[in-house]
Amino acid sequence: MTDQAAPPRSKNRLNDSEDDVLARIEAFRRRRPRLIDEFVTLAHGAGGKASAALVDAVFFEAFGSPTPSDPGDAAVLEVPAGRLAFTTDSYVVNPIRFPGGSIGDLAVNGTVNDLAVTGAVPRWITAAFVIEEGLSIDVLREVAADMRRAADAAGVAIVAGDTKVVPRGAADKVFITTAGVGVIPEGRELGARLVEPGDAILVSGPIGSHGMAVMLARGTLAIDAPVVSDSRAVSALVEAMMDAAPGTRWMRDATRGGLGTVLNELVQAAGLGVIVDDDAVPVEPAARGACDMLGIDPLYVANEGMFAAIVPVAQADAALAALRSLPGGAQAARIGEVVASPSDIVAVRNAFGGTRIVDMLVGDPLPRIC
């Protein structure tokens, strides 16, 4: 029996050239997992392929990446010389979508506004998500898209973030924690210590709309009113007002606790008092009607797109004109003045000459509105 030559071995990866093997390995490394799920699962929070797919398909797609080829664990930013403002906040609003906004744009606008009222120009935001298992991927995409639109409108970049998934019932759909950094222009100083008796109190727009919009959106009250949240970035309004009134002393965005609470914080810090003219405080008619029906004072209702400011009385008219010239500032108003006595008191004066004291909010009549 004659010997027969062994058949040639079929070509496989072990027989490929070293360059071919290296090329295939590199291609494998660059391959990104694809998101094929319709709902968030615990696997999306495990740090593996499902996590990478979720981050790629939802968050990187919406926000981009400062360093697409090397996302890394932190954003590397070019920071100008000077002072920075830094803030952080968490958002647990219920429901996550309401007339005029969503938890997504709220998270961006709230952080931008916290920076803007310190006198900073907002630049960068980070966002961390705690997602309940079972949340629709489409809903998460909508939230991310809302955040991107709000960031673009405010001129800020979402540069880093984190994602965690918790079991059903351990959260309510999605919670978002943000941090923000802004640059304070040279020579700009704000603070309660600068406020003086006789200064004018301004608001950039109507109060009470956000808290009432969220409350009515829950559908637990038999009230049908067209109340729309004021969720917006106020940074453009702040810059316009600062240009027109460079002597501006103090600013705050009146979020939780409303205008009444932030004015109380002011008088306690400054050792002065304020007198507010009730009729001068702008409130949208639908929001006022809802407050009246529920027995809630609009001064205590949260806002997400307006701020209060203290300016020298000589610059008040210029500041108001600047605010009213921009979207979101059409109803800006001068609502009162700072007084030396009585100190540490916020008093509201009505059209008949009577006054009432507005104390700091006790309790929370509108839980989970931001």
Results as ranks from 00 to 15, higher is better:
Ala75Ile: 05
Ala280Thr: 09
Arg288Pro: 00
Asp297Arg: 13
Asp20Tyr: 01
Glu38Pro: 07
Ala332Tyr: 01
Thr163Gln: 06
Val55Lys: 03
Asn303His: 07
Gly100Ser: 03
Met215Asp: 05
Thr261Val: 10
Leu272Thr: 13
Ser204Asp: 12
Ala171Arg: 11
Ala128Arg: 01
Val227Ile: 08
Val76Phe: 05
Ala57Trp: 04
Ala154Val: 11
Asp146Cys: 11
Ala308Asp: 09
Gly295Cys: 06
Val238Ile: 12
Val234Phe: 08
Ala269Ser: 09
Leu323His: 08
Ile137Pro: 04
Arg288Lys: 12
Asp230Asn: 15
Leu221Thr: 00
Asn350Leu: 04
Val214Cys: 02
Ala351His: 06
Asp224Glu: 14
Arg356Met: 12
Asp243Val: 14
Glu78Tyr: 00
Ser136Val: 02
Gln268Leu: 11
Pro8Cys: 05
Thr177Gly: 01
Gly48Leu: 14
Tyr300Val: 01
Ala53Leu: 04
Lys11Asp: 10
Asp278Leu: 14
Lys164Ala: 14
Ile201Gly: 08
Asp243Lys: 13
Ile184Cys: 03
Asp359Trp: 08
Asp292Pro: 00
Ala120Ile: 08
Ala5Pro: 04
Asp344Gly: 03
Leu84Trp: 09
Tyr91Arg: 07
Ser235Val: 09
Gly104Ala: 00
Arg252Trp: 09
Met306Trp: 00
Val338Phe: 04
Gly328Pro: 15
Val92Lys: 08
Gly353Met: 14
Asp297Tyr: 12
Ala57Lys: 07
Val108Gln: 05
Asp70Phe: 08
Ala116Tyr: 10
Asp253Gly: 01
Thr163Leu: 15
Met147Ala: 02
Ser51Thr: 15
Arg188Leu: 12
Pro7Lys: 09
Ala240Gly: 14
Gly72Met: 04
Gly82Gln: 06
Asp114Phe: 10
Thr177Met: 04
Ala319Lys: 01
Ala6Glu: 14
Arg334Ile: 06
Gly101Pro: 15
Glu284His: 03
Thr87Asn: 04
Ile131Asp: 05
Met241Lys: 05
Ala179Glu: 09
Met293Glu: 10
Ala245Val: 08
Asp364Gln: 15
Thr355Ser: 15
Val313Ser: 15
Leu190Trp: 09
Asp114Lys: 15
Ile96Cys: 06
Ala157Gly: 00
Gly257Glu: 11
Ala46Met: 10
Ala46Tyr: 07
Asp292Ile: 02
Leu54Gln: 08
Gly329Asn: 09
Pro327Thr: 13
Ser235Tyr: 07
Val139Gly: 00
Arg324Cys: 10
Pro185Ala: 06
Ala217Gly: 02
Gly198Ile: 09
Ile345Cys: 14
Arg148Ser: 13
Leu266Val: 09
Pro226Val: 06
Ala75Tyr: 03
Val40Asn: 05
Ser229Asp: 05
Asn109Arg: 03
Arg188Ala: 11
Val238Glu: 11
Val281Ile: 10
Thr41Ser: 15
